[in-house]
Amino acid sequence: MKYTPTHPAPADAADRRRAAPVVAYPTDSLPGFDAALYASARTDMTLVDRWEIPPRDAKCFTVPAGHLCRIVSVEGPQVGDLNLWNLHDPSEHFYSGKTRALHGTHLSTGDRLWSTFPTLRPLATLTDDTLDWYGWDDDGASLHDVIGTRCDPYTQRLLNGSDYHYCCHSNLTRAVSRYTGLPLEQAEARVHDVFNVFMCTGFTRDTHQYFMKASPVRPGDYLEFVAEVDLLGALSACPGGDCGHSHSSDDNPCYPLAVEVYRPSAQFLSAWRSPAANPYARQHGT
């Protein structure tokens, strides 16, 4: 614990602590992951676009609805911070908090990346993960988290008084500004909490603080998703490298990441349908 209690425990403290946990958002009523359908997308897929994200930098990219997108390790262990928006309406973007509430702290094949209110629908579905073997380690860590916000210069200044200009927040802001033509202060407002691709993280057992450790990602590993709507993405190759040492530093070994977009098989496109907006919004006009 991070504090020393100042109040005595009541006589029934043990009974109170034994209350059974209840999953806040059970997902049994959601449509299941159709593994066969999404696997069919890869049977005759064609590479149609590729971007390389330099170390300590970010780029925007687009993924047409129904297409496959892979984030790929190409040279060395490197994690990435991902933002996603509806290409045609940037007010609809990735909602890390609701995704975490629905699927848990770390994501893999079959999980969905949900969008903000009022649409609250899958922006993307994770369809393949070469690191799914990792599971949970002895420290309680796993991969691809929706816990951390993103490294940023404001927290850097708060904690150690220094200025670092290649934090993922700054990288993503510059990438959005370049893509949209917006001034930096307006582009910054569009950057949101990220999906930490390849990052190995958890909570400490004593203080329950967010921790990171060296990612097991290696060249050739990838995380793949299908865009459920036309997407604009932005990916930062984190200045933490594999995040086994520190978040934001020029001393960390860092490597590029690749973003690859594939047109799926005709069989998949004939069966796949983009998800509609949340019915509450349609029924109540909010």
Results as ranks from 00 to 15, higher is better:
residue 12 D to T: 05
residue 13 A to G: 15
residue 14 A to T: 02
residue 15 D to S: 13
residue 17 R to D: 15
residue 20 A to L: 14
residue 21 P to D: 15
residue 22 V to D: 08
residue 23 V to A: 10
residue 24 A to F: 11
residue 24 A to Y: 02
residue 25 Y to M: 10
residue 25 Y to E: 13
residue 27 T to C: 07
residue 27 T to P: 14
residue 30 L to S: 12
residue 32 G to C: 07
residue 32 G to R: 15
residue 34 D to E: 07
residue 35 A to N: 12
residue 36 A to H: 00
residue 37 L to C: 00
residue 37 L to Y: 00
residue 41 A to E: 04
residue 43 T to A: 11
residue 44 D to H: 07
residue 45 M to C: 09
residue 48 V to W: 13
residue 48 V to N: 01
residue 49 D to Q: 09
residue 50 R to D: 13
residue 51 W to R: 09
residue 51 W to N: 08
residue 51 W to M: 10
residue 52 E to R: 11
residue 53 I to A: 04
residue 54 P to C: 04
residue 55 P to N: 02
residue 55 P to F: 03
residue 56 R to E: 05
residue 57 D to N: 15
residue 58 A to Q: 00
residue 58 A to P: 02
residue 59 K to E: 08
residue 60 C to Q: 09
residue 61 F to Y: 03
residue 61 F to D: 03
residue 63 V to I: 12
residue 63 V to D: 04
residue 63 V to Y: 13
residue 65 A to L: 04
residue 66 G to L: 11
residue 66 G to K: 15
residue 66 G to Q: 13
residue 66 G to S: 12
residue 67 H to S: 11
residue 68 L to G: 13
residue 68 L to A: 11
residue 70 R to N: 06
residue 73 S to L: 09
residue 74 V to S: 12
residue 75 E to T: 07
residue 75 E to W: 01
residue 75 E to R: 10
residue 75 E to F: 00
residue 76 G to F: 02
residue 77 P to N: 03
residue 77 P to S: 12
residue 81 D to M: 14
residue 82 L to F: 06
residue 82 L to K: 04
residue 83 N to C: 10
residue 83 N to A: 08
residue 83 N to E: 06
residue 85 W to R: 03
residue 85 W to Y: 04
residue 86 N to Q: 10
residue 86 N to T: 11
residue 87 L to M: 07
residue 89 D to P: 02
residue 90 P to Y: 13
residue 93 H to W: 02
residue 93 H to Y: 05
residue 93 H to K: 12
residue 94 F to I: 00
residue 95 Y to G: 08
residue 95 Y to C: 13
residue 97 G to D: 09
residue 98 K to S: 11
residue 99 T to S: 06
residue 99 T to H: 10
residue 101 A to H: 06
residue 103 H to I: 10
residue 104 G to P: 01
residue 104 G to W: 01
residue 105 T to A: 15
residue 106 H to D: 03
residue 106 H to W: 00
residue 106 H to P: 06
residue 108 S to W: 03
residue 108 S to N: 07
residue 109 T to H: 06
residue 110 G to W: 00
residue 111 D to L: 02
residue 113 L to E: 15
residue 113 L to P: 05
residue 113 L to H: 08
residue 113 L to D: 06
residue 115 S to M: 02
residue 116 T to A: 10
residue 118 P to K: 15
residue 119 T to N: 12
residue 120 L to I: 14
residue 121 R to A: 02
residue 123 L to Y: 03
residue 124 A to N: 01
residue 124 A to F: 00
residue 125 T to S: 02
residue 125 T to F: 01
residue 126 L to H: 08
residue 127 T to I: 01
residue 128 D to L: 03
residue 129 D to H: 05
residue 130 T to R: 06
residue 130 T to N: 01
residue 130 T to H: 09
residue 131 L to K: 00
residue 134 Y to A: 11
residue 136 W to N: 00
residue 138 D to E: 01
residue 139 D to S: 07
residue 140 G to K: 10
residue 142 S to H: 05
residue 142 S to K: 09
residue 145 D to R: 07
residue 147 I to K: 05
residue 150 R to C: 11
